[in-house]
Amino acid sequence: MGSLRLPSLNALTVLHSDFGGKQSTKSLPRINLLSPSMPSPMKMTSPLRTRYFCRSVIKMRAGEEDFELKQMRDMAAAKKRWDAMIREGKVKVLTPREAGYAIQLSNKTLLDVRPSIEHKKAWVKGSTWIPIFEVDDRLDPGTLSRKITTFMMGGWWSGVPTLSYNNQFLSMIKEKFSEDMNLIVACQKGLRSLAACELLYNAGYRNLFWVQGGLEAAKEEELVKEGPQPLKFAGLGGVSEFLGWTDQQRAAAAKEGWGYRLLFSARLVGVFLVADALFIGAQQVGRYIQEIRSH
Rank of each mutant, 00 (worst) to 15 (best):
A76K: 14
L69C: 06
D276W: 10
R192I: 01
E118I: 03
E134W: 04
S164W: 13
A196V: 06
M44P: 02
L191E: 05
M75C: 08
I103Q: 01
A78T: 07
F279C: 11
P47V: 05
T109G: 01
E226N: 08
R81I: 14
A277C: 04
S24D: 09
R261H: 04
R114Q: 04
S127E: 07
K125M: 09
R293Y: 12
V135Q: 12
L223W: 07
L208A: 09
S158Y: 04
I292E: 14
K174P: 01
E222L: 03
R61A: 10
C187R: 05
H16Y: 07
V239C: 05
K232F: 00
G159Q: 05
E220Q: 12
G257T: 02
Y201M: 04
E179M: 11
M38K: 12
Y101A: 10
D83N: 09
G259R: 08
A275M: 08
T95F: 13
F19N: 15
L69P: 00
M42K: 15
R146D: 13
K26Y: 08
K174W: 03
F272S: 02
L111N: 13
H16M: 10
L170N: 01
A251N: 01
M44G: 07
A77P: 00
P131H: 02
D112T: 12
D180Q: 13
G2C: 03
M153L: 15
S145D: 11
D83K: 12
K70N: 14
R51A: 14
A253E: 10
V239K: 03
P96H: 03
L263A: 02
S127G: 11
